[in-house]
Amino acid sequence: MAKNVGRVLLLAGSILATGVVLMKVTVPDENEMRKRLDPTLLKEADRMKAQHKERTQQLLDQMRQVAESDKPMWGDKK
C-alpha cells in the first residue's frame, strides 16, 4: 500500500513539475509581449491601462470618503 502511495505522489509531482516548466518556457513575460505588439495596439493598451488605473483610483478615493463619513454608502433616501 505504501509503495503505491509513493508512486502516486512521485507521478503527481512529476506531472506538476512538467506543467510548471512548460509554462515558464512557453509563456512570455509582459516585456516580451510589449515588444511584439504593433505600435498602434501598444498605444491602445497603454491608454486602456491608464484609464483602468484612473477608475480604480477614483473608486478607492470614494471608498475612503465613505469609510470616513458617518453616512451609509447607499445614501439617505429622505
Rank of each mutant, 00 (worst) to 15 (best):
K71T: 02
D61R: 09
D61Y: 00
G19L: 15
M48L: 15
A45H: 08
Q62D: 02
V5E: 12
L16W: 04
Q51L: 10
Q65A: 13
P39N: 06
T56H: 06
L42P: 05
H52P: 05
L22V: 07
L37K: 04
W74Q: 08
T56F: 01
L9C: 04
P72K: 06
L42M: 11
L59N: 03
G19C: 12
G75Q: 05
G19H: 05
M33S: 01
L41I: 13
Q65W: 03
A2W: 10
K43Y: 06
G6T: 07
P28D: 02
V25F: 07
V25P: 02
P39Q: 01
A67T: 06
D38A: 15
L59T: 05
R7N: 10
L16T: 12
G6P: 03
M33T: 09
A12S: 12
W74V: 08
D38L: 10
H52M: 14
V20A: 07
K71E: 10
D76L: 13
G6S: 10
A67F: 04
E32V: 07
A67Y: 04
V20W: 08
K35A: 13
G75S: 07
E44R: 12
Q51A: 11
D46K: 15
D76Y: 04
K24P: 00
E32F: 04
L9V: 06
M23G: 00
Q65S: 12
D38R: 10
T56G: 09
K53A: 15
L41M: 15
E32W: 00
T26E: 01
M48K: 14
L16G: 09
Q57V: 04
L37V: 05
L10V: 04
N31K: 12
D29Y: 02
L37Q: 08
L59D: 07
S14R: 01
N31I: 09
G6M: 09
K24W: 00
R34H: 02
Q65T: 11
I15V: 15
M1E: 13
L37G: 07
N31T: 11
K43I: 15
V27K: 00
G19S: 11
D38C: 02
K78I: 07
T40M: 14
V20H: 00
N4I: 12
N4Y: 08
V21N: 03
K49Y: 01
R36K: 13
S14Q: 00
D61G: 09
K78T: 12
L11P: 01
V25I: 13
V25N: 04
A50S: 10
A45V: 14
T18Y: 11
R55V: 08
E30I: 13
K77M: 06
L41K: 14
W74R: 07
R64N: 13
D76N: 06
M48P: 04
V25D: 02
L37H: 06
R36P: 03
T40C: 00
Q58M: 11
D38I: 04
L11I: 03
D46C: 06
M73R: 06
D76Q: 05
E68H: 05
N31D: 09
K78G: 11
K49D: 10
T40W: 11
K53L: 11
P39C: 05
L59F: 03
G6A: 10
K43S: 13
K24Q: 05
V66K: 06
M23C: 03
R7C: 03
M48T: 10
D29L: 05
Q65P: 00
L42V: 09
E54H: 09
A17G: 10
A17I: 13
E30D: 14
